[in-house]
């Protein structure tokens, strides 16, 4: 290697996309979030997008902190409301890429209603959901994604509620792109995020990621590294899998891959076409408010 130790510490390869003045981040060692953020940054870099034209919106939770670390126009909103905030932002600035990056509790528990309706409308945005099966920021409580029998601080004798199958939820609500990867599948995850960002319509990427501090500890699964090993041994790549068959049980096989990739007019296309059809010349098409609106 010709790179000296000195040079190596000088610049993080993703410095252009990270707020280095906010590093070190708050996440625990071996948490899956760092990898997922790297995947997003790499995807943005690979796509050669104009960084000025990307907005990241997060809700609340460990994953909710992502917006704060991305050197992009970034919004840290309220618990569960990242998606509706992003809906407004997208409508005002449709030329921008709007990316919602948040956790499972945020997006599909408190924000579940927004998730399904925004997918239904096919609003052109990308939702990246880091699913660590637990409410991490608040100390490890049961989530709508916690597998049956898994323990959390509020399911101390094991979870007895049926969890959501997020790809099925997204697909049945109307998403045009649905993929699931784990934090281990860095290359494929990066590619999926890039595809999702490029996809017209509501695109959804679920990332199964280790919460080393809470989920792993409460369930005696070892460290984050042990969970990565578990993903290595138990993730099964099945592109095009029927979303009805990708449920996740406690420490079961995890089916990953790209499940949905379809074409469908977006919310704004439908809005403009629908109004034009009826109003003709009287309709003032909506193109956002970057110009003279």
């Amino acid at each position: 290697m010709s790179v000296s130790a000195n040079q190596m510490t000088e610049e993080h390869p993703m410095e252009k996309l990270l707020r280095m003045d906010r590093i070190p981040h708050i996440w625990c060692p071996t948490c899956g979030l760092g990898t997922t953020v790297t995947a997003l940054a790499t995807a943005i870099d690979d796509l050669k997008l104009n960084y000025d034209n990307i907005a990241v919106v997060s809700g609340i939770g460990c994953t909710g902190r992502v917006a704060g670390y991305m050197k992009l126009d970034s919004f840290h909103t309220t618990h569960g409301r990242a998606i509706p905030f992003a809906v407004g932002l997208h409508i005002a600035r449709p030329e921008m890429k709007t990316i919602v990056f948040s956790g499972d509790g945020d997006l599909v528990s408190i924000g579940g209603n927004h998730f399904i309706h925004t997918a239904r409308r096919n609003v052109d945005m990308t939702v990246i959901c880091v699913n660590n099966f637990i409410y991490a920021m608040t100390g490890g409580q049961v989530a709508p994604t916690t597998p049956l029998t898994a323990r959390s601080s509020t399911s101390p004798y094991g979870n007895y509620e049926h969890p959501f199958n997020l790809p099925r939820l997204a697909a049945s609500s109307g998403a045009t792109y649905v993929a699931r990867w784990t934090a281990l599948h860095v290359r494929r995850l990066t590619q999926a995020i890039a595809e999702a960002i490029s996809k017209k319509g509501f695109s959804f990427v679920e990332v199964i990621a280790p919460c080393s501090t809470l989920y792993a500890r409460l369930n005696k699964l070892g460290s984050g590294l042990d969970l990565m090993k578990f993903y290595h041994d138990n993730a099964v790549i099945k592109h095009g899998a029927d979303v009805n068959e990708v449920d996740i049980d406690f420490q079961s096989k995890i089916i990953v891959g790209k499940f949905v990739d379809i074409e469908k007019p977006t919310y704004l296309e439908c809005l403009n076409e629908g109004n034009e059809r009826v109003l003709g010349d009287k309709y003032k098409p909506w193109g956002g408010c970057n110009g003279d609106n």
Partner: peptide, 27 residues
């Protein structure tokens, strides 16, 4: 539609309020 603007009937009031903040942030 005749003067320029988007009306969106959100899924609830939580979303309505969040959306107007997002759109305002967008200009």
């Amino acid at each position: 539609p005749k003067v320029g603007g988007v009306f969106i009937q959100m899924e609830d009031e939580l979303a309505s309020m969040a959306a107007i903040l997002g759109a305002s942030s967008g200009g």
